[in-house]
Each structure stands twice: as C-alpha cells, then as structure tokens.
Computed example of a mutant assay.
Amino acid sequence: MGLFDKLTGTRRPSDGVVPLPVHEVRAALLALGGPEVPWVVRDGAAEDADLVAEWRIREPAWRTFFLRTQVSELLQIRMRLLPDKREVRAVDRMWQVTWAGDTPRLALSAEAARGQMSVSTKSWTLGRGEGGEDGEDGPTQNFGVDTSDLKDPVRDTVLAAGWMWRGVAFGKL
C-alpha cells in the first residue's frame, strides 16, 4: 500500500480472493443494513452514485436513539461500482445535525466536508441507582456513534468480494 492509498483509505482484497460479479457485490452491500443496525445501504441513483450507506437518523424507529446520543455529525458514504476494474470508489460526506425538539435537521456544512472522514467514538454510559437517581448502581445502557461502525462493514464486504475499495478524496466519484 502506497502513501496516497493510506491517505485516501484505499484497500485491496487479500491475495487469492476470487472477485464476485458486480450484481453479487451490489446484493451483498444492500443486504448489510438490517433492522438491528442504525444504518442502511440503499440505491443511490438519485444522488449520482450506485449505492449510498448512511445512518438511519430520519427513520422514526431510530430517531430516539440518535437524539439520546446527541449526535452532531453523521457520515454518508457514496459508492460507484466499477465492474471492469473490480473496484468500488467511495467518497464520504459529513453532515452536521441540529435538533429541533426530537426532529433532526441535516446540513452539509461546507464542500470541504467531502472526502475520507473519520469521527472518534463518542460513548458514554447512562445508569440509574436503586432509588432512580443517576449513579453507578443499577442497569446501564451504553450509547455511541463511530464512523467505523458504518464504514468497516461496508468496506469489509467489498474486500471479501475480491474487489478493491478506493477512497476518493475529491473529484468525480
């Protein structure tokens, strides 16, 4: 892996992995998001991409999760599948989230927010003591949002399919 590959997040599949046809790679990526994960992979034709992976912040079932975690930034990965090269080109977009009550509003803060992104884990524990007060005793619930929770499974699926994951910093997807 070269220096530029490291900067863009480009990864190559392991030696000996037989590349799958494009329709199988697409199907594997679309199958990633399920009801138990707070993100989805969907068709991206309306956004000049083949596929888009993003957090489910607008879905009512997940909105309270994101509200409780006070998420302020979200990652979106736009992907283009290039079957001739057996490559998925990916560009990240970081969205700023503001909350009006329990309704999220998303805004791309600047074009500079486009490229390969990473946000550190934001994690904390909520707990209640036996009398209902905040404290160390009693049941706890962990919350956190990390860009790798979305990016790693998507990228790993591409690599397991024998395709290259090429991060695109700027320019055409």
Rank of each mutant, 00 (worst) to 15 (best):
E111N: 08
A112K: 15
A53H: 08
S72C: 15
Q76F: 11
G44F: 13
G131S: 14
L108V: 02
I57T: 10
E59F: 10
M79R: 01
T69P: 02
D92T: 07
D43I: 12
W95C: 00
W55I: 04
N142I: 14
D102L: 03
N142P: 06
V71E: 00
K85M: 14
A61M: 09
P83M: 06
P60I: 02
T140C: 04
E73G: 02
T147G: 03
E130C: 09
L108P: 00
F65H: 11
Q141M: 07
V119Y: 15
R68S: 11
D50G: 08
Q141H: 09
A61Q: 12
D146L: 02
L81S: 06
D137R: 07
E87R: 15
W124P: 00
G132M: 03
L108W: 01
A61T: 07
T64A: 13
G101F: 15
R89G: 00
L81D: 01
D137L: 08
P60S: 12
S109N: 13
D43T: 07
K85G: 01
Q116R: 10
E54A: 10
R86P: 04
G127R: 11
M79V: 03
D92V: 09
R63A: 09
R89P: 00
L51D: 04
V91W: 05
D48K: 10
T140S: 09
G144M: 11
R89F: 04
E136T: 06
G135M: 04
R78W: 06
D146T: 03
F65S: 03
D92G: 08
V119H: 05
R68P: 03
V145C: 07
W99T: 01
M94K: 05
E111Y: 06
Q76S: 09
L75H: 15
L51F: 13
E130L: 09
D43Q: 12
L81K: 05
R80D: 11
A113F: 12
I77E: 00
T98E: 03
G129S: 09
D84P: 13
T64S: 13
